[in-house]
Design a protein around this nucleic acid. Structure first.
Lengths: 219, 219, 219, 219
DNA sequence: GATGAATGAGCATTCATTCAT
DNA sequence: GATGAATGAATGCTCATTCAT
C-alpha cells in the first residue's frame, strides 16, 4: 500500500514537523516517539532510522534553530561598515522576531528546553551560545565605540535584550489567553518592535541630541 | 526508629525540597519519583502518601510559588494611597526579584514549566495568571492616571516587564556560564534592579520635568 | 476523640461486615485492606490488629460461614430417628437456603472464592468439605436404605443438590438483572424450595406409590 | 533471532493460554501480568502489545467463551423444526458440557469471574447474557407449547438447568478431591448427562404417556 | 525505505504490613 | 485500643530501541 507518497512530503520531514509540534506542546521528555510517529503517520522505527533515536531528533531541532538564528546576527555584523551599530542591532532583532514568528513552535520549544540541565543539551548548545555572545558583543561594542550607546556592562544589556526577544514566544500561549496578544501574527512584530527600539534608544547618550537625529535620519 | 531526626526536617519537606531541585534541573517529565525519593532519602511511597502522587507535588510547587509571588504585588497595591504608582511598581519588582533570588530553583522550574501545554498545569495556573493580570493592570492604570507613565496598551508593558523579571532566573545557568553573571547573588539584584528602574522611568512623560523630580524626591 | 462508640458497634465487627461486602463485590484479591478500613470507617492498622492481616479476615469469613452451614445438616442427621430421611434432607436444604438468604453477601463470596486454587483457602476448607461429604453421605445412605431414594452413586446426587443450593446465591446479581428473580427475598426461597423438593421426589422409586404417600403425610 | 519457533505457537496464543491457566487457578485479580508472561515464556510488554493490557486479556477470555457457548444453543434452535424441543434442549446441554469439558480451565474461570461486580465484566457479558436468556426462552417455550414440559415460569427452569451445567466445572477441583469425580474426563459427561436428562424428563406432563413415548422414540 | 514483532529497563502507583506513639 | 507515618515489594503499564523481514 502506497501510503503518503501522494503528498510528496518525505518521511523525514514529516517526523521532524510532528516532533516540533509535540515537543512544543508537551516538552521533550513529555513526548514519546510513538506519539511522534503516530502524528507523522509513519512507523516508529523510522525515527531511529532517520535521526538515530529520539535524541537525534532533539539535536536536529537545536541545530536547525540556531543555525538560522545566529545567521541573522552575523548578517548584521557584516553591515556594520555601511550602517550605524544601533540600526544593525535593530535589524537583527527584527529579523529574529520574524523568524521566530514563522517558526513559533520550534522557538517556544527551544527557549524552554534550553533551560534544562541535561548533558545532551549542553553539548549541543554550548558552541552556539558562545557564538551568540561573540556576535552580540561585537554589535554592542561598536555601538558604544560610536557613542550611540552609553558605556556599560554588555552582559546586562544582552540579558535584557534577549529577555524581550524570546519571552513573547516562550509564553505565547499565556499572551494569547491572558493578554489577548498574538505573537505569531504579523502585526504583533510591528508593534512589539517599536517597544524594543524605544528601549534601545533609551540606552543612548540622552544629553546629546546629535545621535538621536542621526538615528532618525537613517530610519 | 527515628531515622532522620538528626536533621529535624520532616519527610514532607524533604520530598518537596528534593523535588524542586530535580524539577529545576531536569524538568517535571524528566524527573522520576524514584530520583526524588532517593535524593530526599525517603521511601518512594511517601510521595504518594504526602502529595497524592507526582502531580500533587507539581501542584504544590505552583501553589507555593504563586501564592508568594502574587502577595508581593498585592502588598504594593495596598500602598498605592501612600506612594506614587511607579514607586509601588518598583517596590513590587524588587520584592519579586529578591523572592526569586532566594528561591531560584523553584522560580526557574515554574517559569519553564508554565509554558507546557498540559491540562494539569493549565488548571493550576489559570486563576493565578488572571489575578496577576488584574494586579498589574491596577498598578499601571494608576501610574497612567497620575501621568507618571505615558498612556499606552498595558498588555505590552506587562509583557516587557515580566520578560525582564523572569528571564534571568529561567536562564540562570546560561547567565552564569556564558555571561558570568550570577542571578542568585545579592549584588545582581541591586544592579539589575537599576536597569529595570531605568526602563520604567523611560516610560514616563519625558517632556515633563516635574514627574521626574517627584520621583527622585521619593527615592 | 471517641469516634464510633455512639453506635455501640465494635471495631472488629465493623471491619468484618465491611470486608464481607467488599469481598462479595470485588473478590478477595480485588479488595484492598485500605478500602475495607475506609468502608468500616476505622484505621487500617486495626485489620492487622484484630485479624492478623488480610488473610485472617478471609479465614474468619470461611469459618463463620461453614460452622453455621454444616450445623444445619448435622442438626437434621440428629433428626433421622424421628423423621424419614428425605424429610430431613428437605429440612436441611430449606435451612441452608434461609441461612444463605440472610447472609447473601457472605454466601456469594464463599461459593466463588472456594473455587480458587490457593493454598490458604485449601487449608481452611479441606476439613469443612470432608465433614460436609460425611454428613450428606449419611443422609443419602439412610434414604436409600429406607428405599426412599433409588440406589445410585451418592456423589452425583450431592453434586446436583449442591449446584441447586448454591447457584442462585453465587449468581444472585445475574438472576436479578437478567431473570428478574430475587434470591434474597423471602418468597424466592418458598418457590425455589418446591423445585428442589420436586427433584428430590423424582429420585424416589417411582413405581412404588407407598413412599410417595408417606412423604405427603409427613408434610 | 527465532526464539520460540520450535513449538510453532505464536506469542499471542501462548499468552492467552498461559493467562487462562493462571486465571483459572488464582482468579483474575490474583494473577499478575508478570506471572502470565513468565508462564508463556514471553516478554511482559507483549501482553499490552497484543491485548492492550490485562483487561483486554480478560475481555478476550469472555468473548472466546461466550461466542462458542451461545453457538451451541443457537444451533439447536435451528433444529427445532426437525426435532422435538426437549431433544434439542438435551443436545444443546450435551454440546455445552463437551465444550466445557474440553475447555475446563476457561470454563471454570468464566463461571467464577462472572459473579464479580466489576464494571468491565458487566459491560462484556451483559449482551451475552441477554442473548442466552433469549435462546433458552425459545427452547423452553417451544417445549411447553408442544406440551413436552409442564407450563411453569421459565426463569426457574433455566436457573436450575444452568446450575447443573456449570457447577461441576466451577467446582471441578472440589469434585475431584472430595468426591473423586473427574469432570474433564469423557465418561463423566456421559453419566452426568443422564442425570440432567432425567431432570428434564421429570418436567414432562407425567400423567400423559404419549409424550414420554415420543421422546423414547426419538432417542 | 519501511514495517511490526519483540525486548528489557523504567515508569508512577498501590499493596499489606509494621511500628512507635 | 487505636492511630498515622513509614516501608519495601509488587502492581500494570509505557518507554526507546532493535532486528529480521
Amino acid at each position: 500500500m502506497l501510503k503518503n507518497n501522494t503528498t510528496s512530503t518525505c518521511t523525514k520531514q514529516k517526523i521532524f514537523d510532528a516532533a516540533v509540534m509535540l515537543f512544543n506542546d508537551h516538552g521533550y521528555d513529555g513526548t514519546s516517539v510513538r506519539e511522534i510517529a503516530k502524528k507523522a503517520n509513519v512507523n516508529v522505527s523510522n525515527i531511529s532510522y532517520y535521526f538515530q533515536g529520539k535524541q537525534g531528533l532533539l539535536e536536529e531541532c537545536f541545530t536547525q534553530f540556531f543555525e538560522q538564528y545566529l545567521q541573522f546576527i552575523e548578517d548584521q555584523i557584516g553591515q556594520l561598515k555601511s550602517k550605524p551599530a544601533d540600526v544593525c542591532l535593530k535589524h537583527a532583532v527584527r529579523d529574529i522576531l520574524s523568524f521566530q514568528c514563522e517558526n513559533h513552535y520550534l522557538s517556544r520549544f527551544i527557549w524552554r528546553e534550553i533551560s534544562i540541565d541535561s548533558q545532551v543539551i549542553r553539548e549541543i548548545i554550548s558552541s552556539y551560545l558562545m557564538k551568540e555572545r561573540y556576535f552580540y558583543k561585537i554589535l554592542f561594542e561598536q555601538a558604544m565605540e560610536d557613542q550611540i550607546i552609553m558605556k556599560q556592562p554588555i552582559s546586562f544589556l544582552v540579558i535584557q535584550l534577549k529577555s524581550m526577544i524570546t519571552m513573547p514566544f516562550l509564553n505565547s500561549q499565556q499572551l494569547r489567553e491572558v493578554w489577548h496578544v498574538f505573537p505569531h501574527e504579523k502585526y504583533f512584530i510591528d508593534y512589539y518592535m517599536k517597544n524594543i527600539e524605544k528601549w534601545i534608544d533609551s540606552l543612548q547618550i540622552t544629553s546629546d541630541g546629535v545621535t538621536r537625529e542621526k538615528d532618525v535620519a537613517v530610519l
